[in-house]
Amino acid sequence: MPDQLSRMLGERPWLLADGATGTNLYNMGLAPGQAPDLWCETHPDKVRELHRQMITSGADIILTNSFGANASRLRLAKAQDRVVSLNRTAARLAREAVAEVGRAVVVAGSIGPIGEIMAPMGRLTEAEATAMFTEQAQALKDGGADVLWIETVSAVEEMRAAAKAAQTVGMPWCGMMSFEPGGRSMMGVTPPQLASLMDRLPYPPVAYGANCGTGPAELLMAVAGFAASGNERPLIAKPNAGVPRYQDGGLIYDATPEVMAEFGVLARDLGVRIIGGCCGTTPAHLAAMREAMIAAPRGPRPSPERISARIAQVMGPGE
C-alpha cells in the first residue's frame, strides 16, 4: 500500500502544506527563548488549535510541533530525557486535529536539524546524528505521524543521517534544505547537489525541496535549480513569509498574504507539487495561497526574471 502522501500526490496536481509553527505559537503566547516543542505537554490545547486553524485554511499537510524535539536541542531546556514523550504527544495532537475533519490531511512528523556542526567541521558524527534522528522518528511514528518531514538541514551528512533514521523506523519521508541568498546552504550545498544526493540515497524520499530562507523569491530560485537538475521526484517549496520585525509585542513578517499567494501561483507554475510557508506564515497567508492557486489559470514555467519581478511587484516599493 502506498503511503497517504504518495496517494494524494498521485491524485492531485499540488498539495498545500501548512504554515509556521514557532512563529504562530509565539504570537499565541510562547515566551521568547522557550522551546516551542514543550508546549505539546504544557499547552496542548493551543497546539491543537493551531493545527485546526491550518486545516481550516486549507492545509493538506500539517507539521507536528516537534521541530526541535531531538536530544541535543532539548538539552538546552534540560528536557533531553523527554524526546520520546514530546514527539509522541506532538504526533497525537496533530492526529486528533485531523480526526475532526472529513477530508484527508497528512500528519507530517517535523524533524529539524540537530543543532550541532557535523564532522569533519564539527564534532557531531553521522552515527550520532542517525541515533538522535532515529529516536525522534520512532516516537513520531508511534504517535501516529504519516510521514517524516526533515527540514531546514544544511549539511549532506545530516540529510544522510536523517534518511537512515527514516529507513530504520520504516517511515516514508520528505527532505528539505534551507538555502542562503547566494544559492547555497549554510554548509555550502547547492540545489543541484541536493538533487543528486536524493537520487543516490539507498532510501530516497517521497518528495524533497527547500524551506525557510530569506523569502519567497530566493527560495523559488533554489527550487528552479532542482527543476533544472532533471530529478523527477516531487518538489517542495516552503519559504519564510519574508523578513521578521517586532510589532505590537509579536513577530510580523513583511510578506503579506498577497505576496505569499503570488508565490504559491509561481511555485505551482514552476511544477512544485507541495507548496506551503515556513516562519511567519499564518493561517491567513495559507488561505490566500490556496484561493489564488485554485483561481489563477495555469501559466508557463516562470523564468528567474519573472519570479523576481512578480514578487517585487506585489511586495511594493520600499519593502
Rank of each mutant, 00 (worst) to 15 (best):
Pro44Gly: 10
Ala94Trp: 03
Leu266Gln: 10
Ala94His: 02
Ser110Met: 02
Gly144Lys: 04
Lys78Arg: 08
Pro36Met: 08
Glu305Leu: 12
Glu258Arg: 13
Phe226Ala: 02
Met198Thr: 11
Thr134Arg: 05
Glu11Asp: 15
Thr89Asp: 00
Ala296Lys: 07
Val105Gln: 03
Trp149Ser: 12
Ile61Pro: 03
Ile274Lys: 13
Arg92Gly: 13
Gln313Leu: 13
Pro239Asp: 07
Val153Trp: 00
Thr282Met: 10
Asp18Phe: 14
Glu96Cys: 07
Glu128Met: 13
Asp199Gly: 15
Ala137Phe: 08
Ser85Ala: 09
Ala295Asn: 11
Pro239Leu: 05
Thr56Pro: 01
Leu25Ser: 00
Ala139Gln: 04
Pro44Trp: 12
Glu49Gln: 08
Asp18Val: 14
Gly68Trp: 00
Ala108Thr: 09
Leu201Lys: 04
Ala296Cys: 12
Asp146Pro: 04
Gln247Trp: 14
Thr168Arg: 12
Arg82Val: 09
Pro304Ile: 10
Gln247Tyr: 13
Cys40Gly: 09
Thr64Phe: 14
Met28Ile: 01
Ala139His: 02
Cys279Gly: 10
Pro234Leu: 03
Gly68Pro: 02
Gly264Tyr: 01
Gly271Arg: 09
Leu74Ser: 10
Val105Asn: 01
Ala69Asn: 02
Ala94Asp: 00
Thr134His: 04
Ile114Cys: 09
Pro302Ala: 08
Leu235His: 12
Arg88Ala: 00
Gly183Arg: 07
Ser178Gly: 08
Pro204Thr: 11
Arg184Pro: 03
Gly271Met: 12
Asp81Met: 01
Glu157Val: 04
Ala312Leu: 08
Arg88Gly: 01
Ala312Asp: 11
Arg92Phe: 09
Tyr246Ser: 11
Leu9Met: 06
Pro257Glu: 10
Gly144Gln: 10
Asn240Val: 10
Leu63Gly: 01
Arg103Pro: 03
Arg298Tyr: 06
Phe263Gly: 00
Gly122Arg: 09
Gln4Asn: 14
Ser57Arg: 01
Ala288Asp: 01
Arg310Pro: 02
Met118Asn: 09
Val265Ile: 11
Asp146Thr: 02
Arg184Lys: 13
Ser57Gly: 15
Thr64Asp: 14
Val265Leu: 05
Glu319Arg: 07
Val47Ser: 04
Ala284Pro: 00
Ala20Glu: 09
Pro317Arg: 15
Gly188Ile: 02
Asn211Arg: 04
Thr190Tyr: 12
Ile114Thr: 08
Arg233Glu: 03
Asp45Phe: 09
Ala228Val: 07
Thr256Lys: 03
Thr282Val: 09
Arg301Trp: 02
Pro234Asn: 00
Glu11Trp: 05
Trp14Thr: 08
Pro172Ala: 02
Asn87Trp: 09
Leu74Gly: 06
Phe179Leu: 07
Ala129Met: 15
Gly143Lys: 01
Met177Leu: 11
Thr130Gly: 07
Leu235Thr: 12
Ile275His: 13
Ser85Gln: 08
Gly22Thr: 15
Gly242Ile: 04
Leu148Tyr: 03
